[in-house]
């Protein structure tokens, strides 16, 4: 079966600094892939390229059968690592917004999810706390049914109890058959969920492969291996 995402020899420079060099990997359908690396390793840069937010790069990126662009955007549900919602709207209007633009958005389920996440649908987005905004963004993304979810640091800066809730929300709601590309630098809590992992170090792939194979081969947890590979 065709990979849902193919990345080949992607290079990206900011002036003289190489943010990404020779990055190549595939994401197969129905796999949960951990994109692992410390802050500044190039994860967000790579994600922006895949989502079509950065046009200035070398290499080939294919989502399904399309390059980053209009058709690809329909197949990707993207959770950015920063607040991006129209903050003058009320929460319930933001749900409408998503329903207006995304055919695969399940507004009823999103409304339910917000209730269980205790996000007030009548409040304006700008009146929500940071944690609430993150939950809202998560609910919006997870109630879509794309081929690929891209989640950029969904559990960074979140306390351990909330982390559990977020991971549970992701796993309970993701559309079966879809793949998830989850970037994070917090590994031990979530490594059991990854089918495949990619270590991104200073813009290059240091290691990639099925998580279980790596555990068997190295006799270590992914977290332990990560600490070794990225030791300062």
């Amino acid at each position: 079966m065709n990979p849902i995402l193919q990345v080949r020899q992607v290079n990206k420079r900011y002036g003289k600094v190489a943010a990404l060099s020779g990055v190549s990997f595939d994401v197969a359908p129905g796999r949960i892939v951990g994109l692992l690396g410390p802050n500044g390793s190039g994860k967000t840069t790579l994600i922006k390229i895949i989502c079509g937010l950065t046009s200035d790069y070398e290499g080939v990126v294919v989502i399904g059968d399309n390059p980053p662009g209009l058709a690809a955007k329909r197949e990707i549900a993207y959770l950015p690592d920063r607040e991006s919602l129209p903050d003058w709207l009320k929460v319930k209007d933001v749900l409408r917004y998503f329903a207006d633009f995304y055919d695969d958005f399940d507004i009823a389920r999103a409304a339910e999810m917000l209730v269980s996440l205790k996000v007030d649908a009548e409040k304006r987005v700008k009146a929500l706390s940071k944690g609430m905004k993150e939950k809202l963004q998560l609910a919006l993304v997870m109630c879509r049914r794309p081929k690929l979810y891209i989640l950029d640091e969904p559990i960074a800066g979140v306390d351990p109890a909330a982390r559990d809730l977020i991971m549970r929300t992701i796993l309970q709601n993701f559309h079966e058959g879809a793949s998830i590309l989850l970037s994070t630098h917090i590994i031990s809590d979530v490594e059991a969920l990854f089918d495949d992992v990619i270590f991104l170090k200073d813009g290059e792939i240091a290691l990639a492969g099925p998580a279980e194979d790596i555990r068997a081969r190295e006799g270590k947890s992914i977290d332990q291996l990560f600490r070794e590979v990225f030791a300062c």
């Binding site: 559990d164 549970r168 490594e191 059991a192 555990r215 068997a216 977290d223």
Partner: peptide
């Protein structure tokens, strides 16, 4: 939810 398995050896086993 997590912490049920050791992460240093294959989880499926």
């Amino acid at each position: 939810m997590s912490y049920q398995f050791q992460n240093d050896s294959p989880i499926y086993a």
